[in-house]
């Protein structure tokens, strides 16, 4: 488990949808502050003020949510 209060995650833009990443950030807004920027082929997500009392890895869970949201959106877009 990571205890850093500030991390940056890079999500490839061809694999993660912007709205899906935003939705994931909204989901975890109570546990950290998220800033999403474009950085070349990636979305660079700055995650600050991570709540140290949270039992779990906020950053990794955020990435899972971003992936799940993207997969869901791609699926519903196709249907």
């Amino acid at each position: 488990m990571s205890h850093a209060t500030h991390q940056t995650v890079k999500l490839h833009r061809t694999l993660y949808m912007q709205q899906a990443v935003k939705d994931a950030a909204t989901t975890f807004a109570d546990f950290a502050a998220f800033t999403i920027k474009r950085d070349g082929d990636y979305y660079a997500v700055d995650i600050k003020d991570i709540d140290p009392d949270v039992d779990g890895d906020v950053v990794a869970e955020f990435c899972n949510f971003a992936l799940a949201n993207t997969a869901g959106r791609k699926k519903s877009k196709k249907a």
Binding site: V9, K10, L11, H12, T14, L15, Y16, D41, D57, A60, E61, C63, N64, L67, A68
Partner: peptide
């Protein structure tokens, strides 16, 4: 795999 692992995709 999302329920048992943290997954990050990259290219």
């Amino acid at each position: 795999f999302l329920d048992r692992a943290y997954v990050l995709l990259d290219r």
